[in-house]
């Protein structure tokens, strides 16, 4: 958690960002507004009229924050959640792919980390490739994976979730290998003197000691997972999900729609990270550790 002293600085920075946003919206939309007025033959505009108009355009280069909030209100609160116009509906589709992929990725990551820690040959063969796997811009082939899996009849959640899996397993492997290796040799020796089996020392020593690493990696992993799900939705233009909304918005120049999809994505990312943090706090307290 953030120390208490940082609330005011954060608010100040946020306020500054908001002011900058308004200034940016005015600066970016000003030219377009003048052109549009000229086109429609509107004359005699004072600069205050133009100023007001820049903040209320239909397809602005940069929508002002209040336009964004209005759009969010319209698409979240004033639509039935099952409607295709509702961002809750699209957000849920993206969220479910994210969560499925994140669950796969975390399980895969933990499994690989267990193998790597317990077998030196696996460690030596896999570890360099796991690291290399992240220099492959897999997001770039996300559309291909979707199209190809669609061609063989697999569609819906699973292909998107696979991309999320690929992105989210990496932080978990790296974090958990570090975590499983973090018991000191004196602690491992103690387990030896108790005649503990490998399984017992795993459950009673390595696993609990690795948990903080797990949660730290999961926070990174869940964010990566969301990115994977959104990019996975790009090829399904006109389809469902936040990624599809982004693409549709960019086709039709609906900037407000793009920004509102982005805002929902940001809310989801923030919410997911916060939830992982809350689970972490609960688990750590349950295990009897001192709250940090």
């Amino acid at each position: 958690m953030k120390p208490a002293g940082s609330t005011i600085p954060i608010l100040v920075v946020l306020l500054a960002a908001l002011v900058l946003w308004y200034l940016g919206a005015i600066a970016l939309n000003w030219r377009g507004q003048l052109d549009a007025d000229q086109l429609r033959g509107v004359t005699g505009q004072t600069w205050t009229d133009t100023l007001g108009a820049t903040l209320g355009q239909d397809k602005p280069l940069l929508p002002a924050p209040h336009q964004l909030v209005a759009e969010l209100w319209k698409t979240i609160a004033q639509q039935a959640v099952t409607s295709k116009k509702s961002l809750v509906y699209h957000g849920w589709i993206t969220l479910s792919a994210t969560l499925l992929g994140f669950a796969f990725g975390t399980a895969l990551g933990i499994g690989l980390a267990v193998l790597i820690v317990h077998n030196d040959a696996t460690n030596r063969s896999l570890m360099p490739w796991i690291i290399a796997s992240q220099t492959v811009p897999i997001l770039a082939i996300a559309p291909m994976i979707i199209v190809v899996l669609n061609a063989v009849g697999i569609s819906g959640l699973v292909p998107k979730a696979l991309i999320s899996t690929y992105l989210s397993f990496f932080p978990v492997v790296v974090g958990m290998v570090k975590g499983f290796r973090s018991p000191e040799s004196i602690q491992l020796d103690l387990m030896h003197t108790y005649n503990a089996s490998k399984l017992q020392s795993f459950i009673k020593l390595r696993w609990p000691i690795a948990l903080p690493y797990l949660f730290a990696s999961m926070k990174v992993g869940v964010a990566a997972s969301l990115v994977g799900a959104i990019v996975g939705e790009l090829p399904a233009g006109g389809g469902n999900g936040l990624g599809a909304r982004l693409l549709a918005g960019s086709y039709y120049g609906q900037t407000i729609q793009i920004w509102s999809a982005l805002a929902v994505a940001a809310l989801l990312a923030g919410g997911l990270v916060v939830i992982v943090g809350l689970v972490e706090r609960a688990v750590v307290r349950e295990m009897g550790a001192r709250p940090a």
Binding site: V12, L226, L246, S250, A269
Partner: peptide, 29 residues
């Protein structure tokens, strides 16, 4: 230190966002 305390948590938060979604807007601009 004031700005640092304000920007560090926000920067961390923004790093977790799917910033790649900004792509269509940048293409427009």
């Amino acid at each position: 230190p004031f700005l640092k305390r304000g920007l560090l948590p926000l920067g961390n938060f923004v790093s977790a966002l799917p910033l790649i979604g900004i792509a269509p807007i940048m293409v427009m601009w």
